[in-house]
Computed example of a mutant assay.
Amino acid sequence: MLALSAAPLVMAQPQAGEDQPPPPPSGWGLGIGVGWQRPVYAGAENKTRVLPLITFENEYVRVLGLGADLKLPSAGPVSFAVRARYALGDGYESDDAPILNGMAERKPSFWLGGAVQWRTEYAKLSAELAGDASSHSKGTEARLGVERDFRFGRFMFTPRVAAVWRDAKYVDYYYGVRPEEATAFRPAYEGRATTNAEVGLRTFYGFSMRDGAFLDVSATALGSSIKDSPLVDRRTLPAVRLGYLYRF
């Protein structure tokens, strides 16, 4: 579930009018990110990933890490995009934890869908609907979020909350136990649709107009049908991401 590409990085720049989004930066960026997240599966070791950050943005596209947007015409403060992303943190191999021994591998998925963002005077509201284009889970995901930027000199603080709905196919693929995988300690389990709740705070510090560093701390409260899985022994998943980016 850990995705370094999930948090947008914004360099210090002049503010636009209240009813218009700030002009997008243009060009390439390079950096590095480190992410840590407590795994969802019982007995699995904590995961730390170091990934290069590659960004590109112009009038038509936005690329950040493992995600990319194709920008569509906007309507004032409301923007639209076709969104693609690779969910590197999803899935497992049978040797990732003792509870998974004998389970078939669950593969990460490539997601494709649409996204909309509405910038108001008080906050940024966002919605996203995506499907598993790789057909591993054949699942669907919907996300609703709200966040607000607070600027203090070179610092920007962005608290956020989100609700993420996953359908039964997604939950059953990643958290279900097939009849042929069941044991005395791992009963068969069929996943149901559920909703996770997320809260987080992203802190960004701009060293200059071109480079800066970010720290993102978050927690995800798992939905009931994920918590009920015999593969899961946690209710909340904390995560930390930090990194540095230079834009050319």
Rank of each mutant, 00 (worst) to 15 (best):
L201G: 04
S208K: 05
K227L: 06
F152I: 12
S208D: 13
A239T: 04
T158C: 04
E198V: 15
Y205G: 05
A182M: 02
E198Y: 10
D167L: 10
P187V: 00
V164D: 12
D228C: 05
E181N: 01
K169N: 14
P230S: 01
A168H: 14
R186A: 00
F152C: 06
R151E: 12
A239Y: 07
G212H: 02
F204S: 11
L245Y: 08
L242C: 12
M209C: 07
E180I: 03
Y174F: 15
R151D: 11
Y170S: 13
V199D: 04
S229R: 02
G200I: 02
F207Y: 10
D211W: 08
D216M: 03
F207I: 01
E180Y: 13
F155H: 14
S224R: 13
R235A: 15
I226C: 05
R202A: 12
L245T: 11
R241G: 12
L215W: 08
R178S: 04
V240W: 10
Y173H: 13
N196Y: 08
V171I: 15
F155K: 04
Y170V: 09
V171Y: 02
E180L: 09
D216G: 05
T195H: 07
A168W: 09
P179R: 03
T194E: 07
I226P: 00
E190D: 15
M156R: 15
A221V: 10
L215S: 08
P187T: 02
A163Q: 12
K169S: 13
D228W: 03
P238K: 02
V217S: 09
P238G: 04
L231S: 01
Y170T: 15
T203I: 10
G212I: 01
S229Q: 03
Y189T: 00
G243A: 08
R241T: 07
D211C: 09
P187W: 00
G206E: 01
R247L: 11
R202V: 05
V161K: 03
S224M: 04
V232R: 00
V217H: 07
L237V: 13
F155R: 05
T195R: 04
E180N: 12
S224D: 15
S218C: 07
T220L: 11
Y246I: 12
I226Q: 02
R186H: 01
A184T: 12
A197W: 14
D167W: 13
F214D: 06
A188Q: 15
A182G: 03
Y205E: 03
G223C: 10
F214H: 11
N196P: 05
T236S: 08
A162N: 06
T158P: 05
T194L: 11
R151H: 11
A168Q: 14
L237C: 07
T220D: 08
R178T: 02
F207N: 02
V177A: 01
K169I: 08
D172L: 03
G206K: 02
T194M: 10
A163V: 14
D233I: 03
